[in-house]
């Protein structure tokens, strides 16, 4: 599958990435080779109901009971965040409009 520089720019914009010109070219080549491999996989004929169904148990998606389990994750994660309002226990991020 051919990947153009426009494709790279489009995906970069969606991902909010600013790319230097040489990075655009390098990523274009990388993406093309990754998607080329996917094209190769596509040639395989896989029977059944589509992705994710083959080889799975008949009862489908595993479910859990609706029970609360407390986690102390935030106590570890908040101090590890690049910017944080520890007193208010918020993550702090550059302002996003809207």
């Amino acid at each position: 599958m051919a990947v153009t520089l426009e494709d790279v720019d489009h995906v970069a914009r969606l991902a909010r990435l600013g790319l230097a010109d040489e990075e655009r070219h390098a990523l274009r080549a990388d993406l093309e080779s990754i998607l080329g491999y996917v094209d190769l996989l596509r040639e395989l004929e896989i029977p059944g109901e589509g992705p994710g169904v083959e080889g799975l148990p008949e009862d489908g998606c595993r479910e859990r009971l609706d029970e609360v389990r407390q986690s102390q994750a935030a106590d570890l994660v908040l101090p590890a965040a690049p910017t944080v309002d520890l007193e208010g226990r918020f993550f702090r991020v550059p302002k996003v409009l809207d």
């Binding site: 389990r69 935030a74 993550f91």
Partner: peptide, 17 residues
Amino acid sequence: CGCSTTFGAAPNANTCP
């Protein structure tokens, strides 16, 4: 995940990995 859905908890208290 098993985090509580209670409204009005302290910020980020109802979070897990």
